[in-house]
């Protein structure tokens, strides 16, 4: 049976696509799945450094597509997990070095060998994005609780639907529970209400992500941080398990007092 090809995309840059791809891949591989991560961000590759595999690159995606390298020789095996591989992007080529048809063929070939093919999409909605989604059968949209990121996520949802990727699932990244609590950050319900797509997971803003990225180690493989737990939950949901959404924080005294007095809930239905 062919594996699942899932594109991780967002529209806006800097919301955490690459970190998400790395952690979901590592999380799935740690459950014993065979996973190939594909960096589709040609010219601006980064999945290699987030994974800590930057020193092992011999061939890249463009060389494979052009027939200058065998796929098998370009795949970098992860040093920590048996079933985890990375196909790096080319760094010195342009985005249009690859066509959507070539990406489709490449993903189909990878899906024969792997349970999961996770494609890390570049930011934007141009050629690189169209390449990244070409071979995908499912899509994950990453956003943060900010106006610009949510707006772009909505735009991407429309574009995915136009390309027959009609049920994208959403990861809300970098939630700061304290800001949500005092009403200075869109909360999960707000974002879901606005975007009207299915929620796959929520990831709290966590310094451990930066520390892990400094070291080139996906946080999901490290200790028991909130972010690691969040990614593990998402991985289980991708696998089809029903996992309750993480409680970000105990309710603060103010919101408890508010609900006691009867205020504060009013805005919900508005």
């Amino acid at each position: 049976m062919a594996g699942r090809v899932i594109v991780v995309t967002s529209g806006k840059g800097g919301v955490g696509k690459t970190t998400t791809t790395a952690n979901l891949g590592a999380g799935l591989a740690s459950l014993g799945r065979r996973v190939c991560l594909v960096d589709a961000d040609i010219g601006l590759r980064n999945l290699d450094v987030v994974m800590g595999l930057e020193n092992r690159i011999v061939y890249d995606l463009v060389e494979v597509v052009e027939g200058h390298a065998r796929l098998r020789n370009a795949l970098i095996k992860d040093k920590r997990l048996d079933g985890l591989f990375l196909l790096p992007a080319a760094q010195t080529r342009e985005k249009d070095a690859v066509t959507p048809e070539q990406m489709k063929a490449l993903c189909a070939q990878l899906a024969e060998e792997f349970d999961y093919v996770l494609v890390d999409s570049p930011a934007g909605i141009e050629h690189g994005f169209r390449n990244a989604i070409a071979g995908a059968t499912e899509a994950i949209i990453v956003t943060t609780p900010e106006v610009a990121a949510v707006r772009d996520a909505d735009r991407i949802t429309g574009l995915l639907e136009a390309h027959e990727l009609s049920n994208p699932r959403l990861i809300i990244n970098r939630i700061r529970p304290q800001m949500v609590r005092r009403g200075d950050m869109l909360d999960i319900d707000d974002v879901i209400e606005i975007l009207a797509i299915d929620l796959l997971g929520i990831v709290p803003d966590d310094e451990s992500i930066i520390v892990a990225t400094n070291k080139g180690e996906p946080v999901v493989l490290g200790g028991n941080t909130r972010a690691a737990q969040a990614y593990r939950n998402i991985v289980r949901r991708i696998e089809g398990e029903e996992v309750p959404f993480m409680q970000l924080e105990e309710e603060g005294w103010l919101s408890r007092l508010r609900s006691l007095v009867g205020f504060g809930r009013k805005q919900r239905g508005a």
Partner: peptide, 15 residues
């Protein structure tokens, strides 16, 4: 108590 100053409401409306 009513949370009218909360900037998330502004964000939501603008969105």
């Amino acid at each position: 108590f009513r949370g009218e100053d909360q900037s998330k409401h502004v964000a939501k409306e603008r969105l």
